[in-house]
Each structure stands twice: as C-alpha cells, then as structure tokens.
Design a protein around this nucleic acid. Structure first.
Lengths: 184, 184
DNA sequence: ACCTGAACACCGTTCAAGT
DNA sequence: ACCTGAACACCGTTCAAGT
C-alpha cells in the first residue's frame, strides 16, 4: 500500500472508532470521511461496505473472544467457563452499540465482510456449550446457532435504554435457561 | 373532522398498512404519502410522528391483546394461559415487522404516541405472570418489565431472517426459563 | 495508483402559499 | 379548516476528473 493510502486507511479506522463509539455502528459514513478529512470515495474504496469497515475495526476483538473461548475450554468448571465467555461477548457488543444487527445479518450471508468473524464466534460458543453439555451442565437440546441467537437477543436488549436497569437480571435468566439447574 | 380530511386520514391509514406490511415499520413516510396520493404535509398533520401513525394503525390490535389477556386470566391453567398470550403477542409483532424497536423506545417515554399501548401490554402480561406465580407455575423473581423485555427480545429475534428456522425452539427455551419446570 | 467531491436518488421535517 | 409541495438539511453510493 502506498504511504498516502496507508495514512488515509489508518486515519479512517481511527475516526470510525471514535464516531461509532459516539453514535453507534449505524453512524453516518459521510460524517466519518468528513471528520477523517478524507474524500468520501476514499472511504468507499478502502471499505466498500459498512460491514467491511466494522470488520477491520473489530477483527482483533473477535479474535480475542475466540482466544478467550479456547482458554476457558481448559479451565475449571464448564458451566462457569460458558457463562464467563457469554458475559465477555455481551460486554463486547455493548461496547459497540449497533453491531449486533449487522452481525446477525452476516452469519448466514457468506458475502458479508463480517461473515467469517461471526461464524468463528458461533463456533467458539458452540465449543464451550458442547463441553458444558458433555458435563451435564447445559441443556442437551441446544446448539451453537441457538446460543448465538440468545447472545444476539441479549445484545440487542442491552442496546435498548429502557432495558438498562434489568440487563444483569435478564442475563442470568437466560443463562439459567441454558444451564441445567443442578439444584433441581 | 371535515369530509376531505377524513378521507385523507383513512386513505393514509390504509396505505400505511400496506406499505408497513411490505417494507416494515421503518418504511418511508414519503412513500406512504405518495402512494396515498396525499401531500406530505397532510400526513404529518394527521400523524405528527411515525409512532402516532403506528399507534393509529395498531391500537385495535393492542386492545385485542389486552382483551385476550383478560380472557385468559379466567381460563384453565395459569401457565398455559401465559404461554398462549406470549405466543399471540409475538405473532402480533411478527405480523408488524419493525414495530418492536419503537415499542421498546416508547415504554419509558411518556411523550411517545405508543407509550400508553405499550404500558397496557406490559400490564396485561404482568397480570398473567402474577397469576402463574401465585400458582407456583412461574419463576417468582420476575416482574412485568422483565417479561416485556423477554417478549421484545423474542420479537426482535423473529425479525432476523437468519433466526427463522429456530424461532419456535427459542420461544420454548425462553418460556421454559419463565415457567417453573414442574418435572424437576 | 490513489484521491476528490460533484452528482444522483433518496430520506425526515417544516412551513409559506394556496383553496 | 385543510391541503400542497418546495425548501432545507441530511443520507448512501457511484464515478468522471484530477494528481
């Protein structure tokens, strides 16, 4: 990449991070180009879709969540491992308001720039779920897609201001539904 | 209301119903005015906000859901009553794609035209939940707001195309979480 | 090889001018 | 009393013209 191109690329990413943090992942791309002091066409060539920009911005976070899952797989209790990972994943989406809707769109669209990351995330969750199920700690009749749906639902809820005071409560209601209640 | 005003009002509502059904509750208001063959200003005077238009369109459905809840309250099993009502409520939102987000925004915003309907819906669910709790059929540590959150989460999931094949499964996972599992 | 911004086709919302 | 649509301030996306 030419030096000036690289500079624009980096500047766009840094500005996108700022603007998405302020306004959510559906912020105006025009505004990002403007604040990055870069032509609108430059943004579109580096990042042909909003998903491509999100992917470049969030790739390392996706990787970190996948790494965390691998790490947790060889940790103590399989149910606690699953719950911690769910918590971290929800926290990640919460830090990036508006990202769960494109992720949900991307998971079954191989053309989306977010597809691979979402599939990886679903697989990471599926592994932790499988271990918990093998231990008898999680409902046997759930799969990775359903876990991903539950994550998405919780993530979307957390984006709703009216839901905020109940976010932690609902998280535990849903995780209770995933885990086998060993006190029963 | 003057006769011509009434005619425009009705025409707008009928067209909005069509367009929202085709494109979801976030469809273009301009498009609705155009297809209703009415000036854009006329739409805005009759319905100052998108919420006002949705409210006029859906009021009877909200009333029907509240009536259904009252009816179910004096029916057989309290757990089955709650589940049927949840099912009908989710089906309603599914018929009106895009409506759950403004509803979630309206529930804590008294200025929203959808506020009263949403509060009514939450109260209707809360009644059925309270009866199921009194019978020992539902988790005691849930309230109407949390039930509304769960409804919203399921409704949002159902709007996601990728989720479609798992909609019924996830519904039962969530209702299992609400109901006390009497086989345990 | 890369950048720019005008151009196009849309929005939501307001409001002066009309009937 | 009500209606209309131009006007304004935005979008996303493309692409001819520049360096």
């Amino acid at each position: 990449m030419r030096a000036d191109a690289k500079k624009n690329y980096d500047q766009l990413l840094a500005t996108a991070r700022e603007v998405f943090t302020e306004q959510g992942a559906d912020a105006s791309l025009r505004d990002i180009a403007r604040r990055a002091e870069v032509g609108l066409g430059t943004l579109y060539r580096h990042f042909p879709t909003r998903e491509a920009l999100l992917e470049a911005l969030l790739r390392s976070s996706f990787d970190a969540l996948a790494a965390k899952a691998r790490e947790l797989e060889s940790s103590g209790a399989s149910d606690e491992a699953l719950v911690s990972w769910l918590q971290e994943t929800i926290a990640f989406t919460h830090e990036h308001r508006g990202v769960i809707a494109p992720m949900m769109g991307a998971i079954e669209d191989p053309e989306s720039a977010l597809h691979a990351s979402c599939v990886m995330l679903r697989a990471a969750g599926a592994s932790l779920l499988a271990r918990a199920q093998a231990d008898g700690n999680a409902r046997a009749d759930l799969d990775g897609s359903e876990l991903f749906d539950l994550i998405a639902a919780l993530a979307w809820l957390r984006e709703q201001p009216s839901h905020a005071p109940r976010a932690d409560r609902l998280f535990s209601v849903i995780t209770d539904a995933v885990l086998v209640n060993r006190d029963a």
